[in-house]
Write a protein that binds this DNA or RNA. Structure first.
Lengths: 184, 184
DNA sequence: TATTGTTATACTCTATAACTATA
DNA sequence: TATAGTTATAGAGTATAACAATA
């Protein structure tokens, strides 16, 4: 069953991966475990409890307010800063919206002089979005705000727990990367 | 400086807490650490890398699609299911939106027959939102979907890492709870 | 024929300001 | 006077469908 247009596949794409290009693969099949286990319910419960603290639920919220930007705009600027100039379609995938939606988002960022569009010389259909100087300066400020927020979260943990968290995330990343490669 | 209406305080409220009532406190002051440290940058970088995997960035996305709901609607239903009948203002705080916004959200959920409004007999100004039978049934299905998503994430970790994650989150919760009490 | 992006349309989310009803 | 919620308005995000240009 072909999925229409660029609509993301529903349901089983929980483990989909955004590769560096525009492709994505569904990796979920071989990993489908039990629907609900004591551990999954425990994690769910912990997330609910932590979600009662606003800052942990949405650390981006105050950053958006401080800089007078929407969450989507911050996402777009952060990914453009991280990845460098990108096809707008790739950018849409990064931030998890459709190609129809990214057009308006980039329109507004362009209007704010934070982003500019150019045609891709190698594929004349494609449009490349890049940060302007002003956009890059804002990206630096956003980055500092995010680092500050990260520091505040880490300040709530014991040093050993911080190390444990880093190790855990790194092993998770390694696992994800190797699984992605297996199927590519 | 009094802040106008119910607008959340900007900036320093990163560590604000939603207590069980409607109050919130700013706990940030005494915790303000260095703006950017090697550890905060490391955490930021890890989050960026993990964010390249769509499922980890937004595990709610496919659940919203499957059930034909918006993220805000799912949040509202989940908190109503978790907390039970709530003042709509309290619900707004839970999901991090203003009182003006919650009205429209509850309007639409009410129109879908998932939520119903009643007046609070003890405070005739207040409006209580509660799940209908249909809403409660949907809440159960959403809960199962979330548990399933949690299980898929946990399946990517070693059993020891899962335990480490639980312990880490529990200590973080305890830390947050005691800090909240200190200043209440 | 398939892909990249845009346009047009409609609905939802969101905040601000002004308002009503109750405390 | 303060608080809980609604209404009105406007801007942004989002998806769907139809379309244009390029491959």
């Amino acid at each position: 069953m072909r999925r229409p247009d660029d609509r993301p596949a529903p349901g089983a794409r929980l483990l989909a991966v955004d590769t560096d290009g525009e492709q994505e693969q569904d990796l979920g099949e071989e990993l489908e475990g039990d629907a609900s286990t004591p551990e999954s319910r425990r994690l769910h419960e912990l997330i609910i409890q932590l979600g009662r603290y606003r800052s942990l639920r949405d650390p981006l919220h105050s950053i958006c307010e401080d800089h007078q930007l929407t969450p989507t705009q911050v996402h777009a600027l952060m990914w453009l800063g991280n990845d460098g100039p990108s096809h707008v379609g790739a950018l849409a995938q990064r931030i998890g919206i459709t190609k129809k939606t990214i057009t308006g988002v980039v329109d507004r960022l362009e209007h704010m002089k934070l982003v500019e569009r150019t045609r891709d010389a190698e594929d004349r259909r494609a449009v490349i979005a890049r940060l302007t100087n002003q956009g890059a300066a804002l990206y630096d400020r956003l980055n500092r705000s995010v680092n500050h927020a990260m520091g505040q979260m880490l300040a709530l943990m014991e040093p050993e727990d911080r190390e444990a968290l880093f190790g855990l995330m790194e092993r998770l990343l390694k696992r994800l990367a190797s699984r992605a490669q297996q199927t590519v």
